[in-house]
Nucleic acid binder design. Structure first.
Length: 149
DNA sequence: GCCAACGTTGGC
DNA sequence: GCCAACGTTGGC
């Protein structure tokens, strides 16, 4: 079992949306490095649900990977914001997977707090210039962040 | 393969 | 809205 962190704009999908829905498809990733991390995920893996591009950016809860990665259907949908004109049924470079709700933290662990937390220096989220939307979290980092919640 | 121009991300 | 940083595109 592995740990991850994935970013979502809460206006699109927040941890509370996921709580209400129970499960959701995680799609729209259009960066190869992030996609490669998606493809490394297996059912049972847990991820921190990060709220980005919002008034209070930070980790808002936990979700679980429930299905192995499959071709991202939004890449083929001309009406989707994530449509990729170069993708086809035969050759779709993008991946999506299914996630389920695990927990909503009683507070958001803010980005500022994560930046100041000793032991998280290597976390891609807080590294200068890093804009990855999907990233690995090691067991030590996971436990450290969980203890802040 | 180089690299300038452009687009995107995402915090502030 | 600004802008730093990174990624992608496309001419050469």
């Amino acid at each position: 079992m592995a740990f991850w962190l994935m970013k979502s704009e809460p206006e699109e999908l927040s941890i509370h949306d996921l709580q209400r829905l129970g499960q959701s498809r995680w799609d729209g990733v259009r960066n190869y490095q992030a996609r490669n991390f998606l493809r490394a995920m297996t059912p049972g893996d847990l991820f921190f649900f990060y709220h980005s591009s919002c008034p209070e950016p930070g980790i808002a809860g936990i979700g679980e990977i429930t299905a192995a990665p499959y071709p991202d259907p939004t890449a083929l949908d001309p009406h989707s914001n994530y449509h990729d004109a170069k993708a086809s049924e035969e050759k779709n470079p993008w991946s999506a997977l299914d996630v389920s709700f695990v927990e909503a933290f009683s507070r958001v662990i803010s980005l500022a707090e994560l930046k100041h937390q000793a032991g998280l220096e290597e976390l891609a989220l807080v590294r200068k210039g890093s804009r990855l939307s999907v990233m690995p979290v090691n067991a030590e980092q996971w436990a450290l962040i969980l203890a802040l919640a």
